[in-house]
Design a protein around this nucleic acid. Structure first.
Lengths: 185, 185
DNA sequence: TGTACATCAGTGAACGCGCGTTCACTGATGTAC
DNA sequence: TGTACATCAGTGAACGCGCGTTCACTGATGTAC
């Protein structure tokens, strides 16, 4: 395994264990057991390394999409929505990093390639369901954007510290059920 | 005007102009024209000052709610949803700060008081609409959580850099219309 | 097989930076008598 | 009205920290002939 890959692995593990604040170049180097200048042999800078880590996150999202069980378009879209929320809840720090523009390089070629693929996959599932007569007149990418944003907000707010006030905190699953009911009827 | 209030004002302005990364204790002190140790006369630390700034954001949200025009419960809820999105788009850095747990003190009394009030206000509007027969069997706070999360995700993703891939970027207003159509039929 | 050279990951000291926070101090203002 | 004292916002030097990045160097590995 290449040193570059090992650095990304170590960073991803450090991210999961210690959070976004821990993935500094020096912290990653230390966790990887190399001197703190070593990572710069493989990445031009911190943002590039973190972008590679975030790309891992988008790749896993894509893998989850590919591993979706067979079923009707509707069943598959519902499963994909659950998958997105599950991923975010299971990998909170990765999820945060994936959307932290100040930490990663938004123009990173691989990152944009994979994240676009995730959206395209999702939009394709939406389009498939539309063929069955669901919101047939709406642009599938617009519909996908709205639905994706709803999932995203659910994950963000839950990770942020509960969906409602402290006195009432519905589980994200229950809120997702309400959301899916609204969209899918 | 007290020095404390002036510091919050200055910080809020600096936040709007320079972003979340600029609101350091030293940066705020410099912008306020005082020595960099001066803010600690009024706040126990950085998190307390930033929490006071974020509280401003929630307060403005509450003010916007109070200023909603008269109308049917449905019209008022739709206006509130637009208001939330408008606020986020008009105050991106404040919106970011309001949900950055690593920068503000989640246990700050005033902050939790006002942010809870915002949610309660929103949930009350939802409950009012339910009296008209809309999703009557669902807990209004659960319904409010789902709808709020959808708005929140719309704002977050838009500010993050477009709702979809670079090839297709629907305006948040168009996506909001789709979302409101899904929930409100 | 042996030799000279190139490549390249990694080292570790150093640089310069901005940060939050501490601390002894100043100077103005308010208050008690 | 005057004096002694307390309060308190602000000062500015300093501390210690972790950061990203630079740089000359080492040592192992691969390659050409």
């Amino acid at each position: 395994m290449g040193a570059r890959t090992r650095l990304i692995d170590t960073a991803a593990q450090l991210l999961a264990e210690e959070g976004v604040g821990a993935v500094t170049l020096r912290g990653i180097a230390k966790a990887a057991g190399v001197s703190h200048g070593a990572p710069l042999r493989h990445f031009p800078g911190r943002a590039a390394l973190l972008s590679a880590v975030a790309t891992r996150g988008y790749t896993e999202l894509l893998d989850r999409g590919a591993a979706l069980p067979d079923g009707t378009p509707r069943e598959r879209l519902i499963a994909a929505c659950h998958g997105y929320l599950d991923f975010a809840l299971a990998n909170p720090a990765m999820f945060e990093l994936m959307f932290r523009r100040d930490l990663i390089d938004a123009n990173d070629a691989e990152l944009t390639r994979v994240s676009s693929a995730v959206f395209d996959f999702f939009a394709a599932m939406v389009a498939e369901l539309q063929e069955g007569g669901w919101h047939p007149a709406t642009d599938p990418r617009l519909l996908a954007s709205s639905l994706w944003a709803s999932l995203h907000g659910l994950a963000q707010l839950w990770l942020w510290g509960g969906l409602a006030g402290a006195s009432f905190a519905p589980s994200p699953e229950r809120a997702l059920a309400v959301t899916l009911d609204a969209y899918l009827g």
